[in-house]
Simulated scan of single mutants.
Amino acid sequence: MSSKQGGKAKPLNQPKADKKEYDEIDKANIQKKKDEEKMLKELKAKAQQKGAFGGSGLKKSGKK
């Protein structure tokens, strides 16, 4: 038999990672981080509705 194999070799199956158990402090930190991300998304959405900052944007003079 030849040692050459055609195509890609299949990756080895890795054992499934066990679920991490969190204590109260870790759970509070995770929840706080999720809340902050949610607030940032809401602020970004509000900022996009208002348009450019400053209102007028770039001003061009009529002189040449």
Rank of each mutant, 00 (worst) to 15 (best):
M1A: 12
S2N: 04
S3N: 03
S3M: 03
S3K: 06
S3R: 06
K4P: 04
G7I: 01
K8C: 01
P11C: 03
L12G: 00
N13W: 00
N13P: 15
N13F: 02
K16R: 12
K16G: 07
A17M: 04
D18N: 12
E21T: 11
Y22T: 09
D23R: 05
E24L: 01
E24P: 00
E24N: 05
E24D: 03
I25E: 14
I25G: 08
D26S: 02
A28R: 05
N29D: 10
Q31A: 14
K32V: 04
K34V: 08
D35I: 11
E36Q: 14
K38N: 03
K38Y: 03
K38D: 04
M39Q: 08
M39F: 07
L40Y: 02
E42H: 02
L43W: 03
K44C: 01
A45M: 10
A45V: 02
K46F: 04
A47G: 06
A47H: 03
A47Y: 06
Q48H: 15
Q48V: 09
Q49M: 08
Q49P: 08
K50Y: 15
G51A: 14
G51W: 11
G51L: 13
A52L: 14
F53K: 10
G54M: 06
G54V: 12
G54R: 10
G54K: 12
G54S: 06
S56N: 12
K59R: 10
S61P: 07
K64P: 14
